[in-house]
């Protein structure tokens, strides 16, 4: 079984749950931007939750199947077409050899996940099939898929009845504005009280520079720094620090103007100060934000972050139970 790529879409990559363990060498964990969507897509086709699938940004690819199987498309809401006939997303769909998969226009979200029974079986690299294009790791020769590629597909272990779906209320969609919860910290003390308040008061918009490495935001007021003599080795700009590690989800603000939230393909460190970190529960949501969408950052404390994390776990468990027919 293989998936033939007829048209690649805008940027379609093989992703699983990533390759932890190499961040100290500058190789990020990577993997699906929207983890819950990837897990759900895999469950819908009978795969392990962490099997490799395709992640497509904004525009769906066109694919042809070389054997019968089951597919599911999750993440953003998008019309799914099999041989031109429209099918629902977030649903197990039977496909036959020779059939073609294509897509309409995305109606919400930014990324879709296309899982196929058996999982995409490109060679793993450092324990993962996730494509990390900057380091040319994983995926198809370390790059996004291209027209003419034939993606190998593994053997399916478990069948799911076609038509099985994740109910609408269990899917997570970005709101308007989307609220991203932030635990302030790291170099938060470097900006004035007014700047701290302003960061949370202002409405921000996703900038066009938004990708797997990080999402940039525009539109809020510039941050004002507390005066200091720059520490030796940091560099002269008040937003410079002695190059340090960057947490996933951390918010750096070069020059104090446009916040950048690092995502799954994060750079592992650098010399810009950070004002806090988007909590783990809201990382998936960032992957579904399109440029120009309004966003507000909302402060939480550690208890709030852990409660949100538990809530996400419960939501995922509900999907697992639903699809297990419990």
């Amino acid at each position: 079984m293989a998936l033939k790529v007829l048209k690649p879409g805008l940027l379609t990559t093989v992703q699983d749950l990533g390759r932890p363990g190499y961040f100290h060498l500058g190789i990020p964990m990577g993997g699906a931007m929207d983890r819950m969507a990837l897990r759900a897509a895999n469950l819908l086709v009978g795969n392990d939750e962490g099997a490799a699938a395709l992640e497509a940004v904004f525009v769906g690819p066109e694919l042809e199947f070389t054997a019968d199987g089951t597919i599911a498309v999750t993440g953003g809401e998008i019309p799914v077409k099999i041989d031109g006939e429209e099918q629902p997303c977030w649903t197990a769909l039977a496909v036959k050899a020779g059939q073609k998969l294509s897509f309409g226009f995305l109606t919400s979200g930014a990324r879709i996940y296309i899982a196929i029974s058996g999982g995409i079986d490109t060679p793993p690299h450092l324990g993962s099939r996730s494509t990390y294009a900057i380091g040319a790791l994983g995926g198809v020769e370390g790059r996004a898929v291209a027209a003419g590629d034939e993606l190998p597909v593994g053997t399916s272990e478990k069948a799911v009845a076609p038509g099985t779906s994740v109910p609408e209320e269990m899917r997570r969609k970005p709101g308007t504005p989307t609220e991203l919860r932030v635990l302030p910290g790291l170099y938060w003390h470097r900006i004035t009280d007014a700047a701290q308040n302003g960061f949370f008061e202002d409405e921000w918009k996703v900038a066009p520079e938004a990708d797997r490495m990080g999402y940039r935001f525009k539109g809020g007021r510039p941050l004002e720094f507390i005066d200091r003599e720059q520490p030796f080795g940091a560099g002269s700009d008040p937003s410079n620090i002695v190059d340090s590690c960057y947490p996933y989800g951390s918010i750096q603000v070069p020059g104090g103007t446009e916040p950048i939230v690092l995502h799954r393909d994060a750079v592992s460190g650098g010399g810009y100060f950070m004002i806090g970190t988007v909590i783990s529960a809201d990382m998936d949501l960032i992957g579904q934000l399109q440029p120009h969408m309004p966003v507000r950052f909302v402060p939480v404390d550690m208890d709030g972050a852990l409660a949100a994390r538990a809530e996400r776990r419960t939501a995922m468990d509900r999907i697992r139970k639903e699809l297990a027919g419990e």
Partner: peptide, 19 residues
Amino acid sequence: YSFGGDEHIFVEVDEEMSL
């Protein structure tokens, strides 16, 4: 010491660089 969200602890040994 500072928490980087709920999954990281960030530890600055010194503000300035030295061996």
